[in-house]
Design a protein around this nucleic acid. Structure first.
Lengths: 302, 302
DNA sequence: TTTTCATGATACCTTTTATGCATCAGAAAC
DNA sequence: GTTTCTGATGCATAAAAGGTATCATGAAAA
């Protein structure tokens, strides 16, 4: 015969009462049933857990150890059952959220904060990644929600615009354009550009380069940085100029001048994107949350 | 029906195999028995743990959580059973050891180190206390073994001499006796003495004062310190002289001069003392250990 | 297509385990 | 003494777990 939770439950009540009859009443079983269960437990352990006499019952040293361990076990079982139930109804769980530099710089912090308030049991696990990487991770079920540079129109995904950014030109202090109130794209034709990694940033440049072509030039890339912070750093030390978004610029530490671009009318969108089917419950909750929050605060914050 | 360890064991094997038939073979039960056990588990939890199809079985998110928790529970049960068994045969446990300043200054560290080598599963819990306090704690079953200033001849206790100390006189550097090679007790009759707390140190002064009386004087106490370190401190800053043991003097930081006392022949004994009956297993092991170690290194080390 | 094979679920019966009732044996209280 | 606690035991019953045979379904083979 094997030890089961029943033995531990009975044992703990008896260890509390130190009286077979009273413990059996608390357990709503007969006294002989309790006596035999404890006997079986002791036989299986090959350990005497209680010193019995007609006058008193008390724990042995081994019994005390078993009480501590048994209590921990029961607590563990209860906690496990509770967590499992909560996960199954979507009250608890983990949500793997991907984000780009553009998303984390603007809408994401507030969005995640509000989501956490609504679903405090769901742990958000953020993963930084460029758009292409996030889409692949979504396909591989490595990610539940991505925040990417849109628009995303691949099949198998649904998406929702969460943020719009107007691109701005960023030049170092002292640059010959720095005193201008704004620039037109054509003004930048002869400038040196600092650039993000070409492949990884494809989604951003897919948006930007057509505008440059329309203005009659191909940006001259002189430096490639690893990420947006790196780009701003290279610009601030005079390696060239760049085009990014206002929210990214807010992260700059100084030595930079932002210039509106007069002849770009459309905006760069950041979208939340998720698989179109077989959503895990936390993901479904996040999608529902996104759609609800549309009624309150819509799209980009600037 | 309630969840038992059986359900968890079966579940974990199935979560590993993800195949009812193979899992049932690993469990040495029939496939229908496993199917029903898992059904009962899911019904009791009100949670679907496995996605089943004719082609594959896989864990749900909730199932993954239950697997982690269940594994922890089983590990906890196993560890608890193991510890309980080891305690019951005396392989593990706790030993509450009391000690005086005299004991800790000499024999105790080596003794405990050797005991730990022989019984690595037994945790020694040291409790500092003067002789009287330790004897009371032994009576109250707050302590298993005491190391006290002997001799102890109260009924209900057994004891064994573990250390003998020859008292020495300790004077500050520059004291008028400091240049002597040794002193006789009578030489100290007019000195100021620094003293331990009278009541707590009764067992030590019961040993010392009769010698003084025989030499024709009652020590003049000018300062009472809280413990032996305090006594040495007060002596070193010139408040008076004291009589302690050589092993205690080894703890002094400087500014002190030890002087043998020529006319004290007997020694101060430190004894291990324990209750004479109903010993806990760790205590019994320690007593056995003490009696064995007598054959190797006997009594005091100096 | 049809057949075969492997899967998990069910039905039915047997075995094992747990429980309750009645009772015993020993110590303490009266 | 007698009563009244205590925990333990014997026996019958109920509940749980297990085994065998079989079903339904979908994938792979013929």
């Amino acid at each position: 015969m094997k030890i089961g939770l029943r033995h531990i439950r009975y044992f703990l009540v008896l260890a509390e009462d130190l009286n077979f009859r009273r413990a059996s009443e608390h357990l709503h079983i007969s006294q002989p049933a309790l006596t035999r269960t404890i006997q079986h437990l002791e036989a299986e352990l090959q350990v005497t857990l209680f010193d019995r006499s007609q006058n008193f019952v008390r724990l042995t040293d081994a019994g005390r150890a078993f009480r501590e361990g048994g209590q921990r076990v029961l607590n563990g079982v209860e906690a496990t059952i509770d967590l499992t139930r909560r996960i199954s109804i979507g009250e608890a769980g983990a949500l793997r959220v991907g984000y780009t530099d553009f998303a984390i710089a603007d809408c994401l912090p507030e969005l995640l904060k509000q989501f956490h308030q609504r679903h405090p049991g769901i742990t958000v696990r953020p993963h930084h990644g460029v758009t292409a990487a996030q889409l692949q991770q979504l396909r591989d079920d490595k990610l539940d929600i991505g925040f990417v540079t849109g628009p995303v129109r691949q099949s198998g995904f649904r998406s929702r615009v969460v943020q719009t950014d107007r691109p701005i030109c960023i030049v170092p202090e002292g640059h010959h354009l720095a005193s201008r109130a704004s620039v037109a794209l054509a003004d930048l034709a002869d400038e040196d550009f600092v650039h993000g990694p070409t492949e990884a940033w494809a989604h951003f440049y897919d948006y930007l380069f057509p505008h440059c072509r329309k203005a009659g030039f191909q940006p001259r890339i002189v430096q490639e940085a690893f990420n947006s912070v790196g780009i701003l750093g290279l610009v601030s030390c005079g390696m060239g100029i760049t085009i990014l978004t206002e929210s990214i610029y807010d992260f700059a530490t100084g030595g930079l001048v932002p210039l509106p671009i007069s002849d770009i009318d459309d905006v760069m969108v950041t979208e939340a994107v998720w698989a179109s089917e077989n959503l895990r419950l936390p993901t479904q909750h996040f999608v529902d949350f996104l759609e609800q929050s549309d009624s309150h605060r819509l799209q980009g914050t600037r």
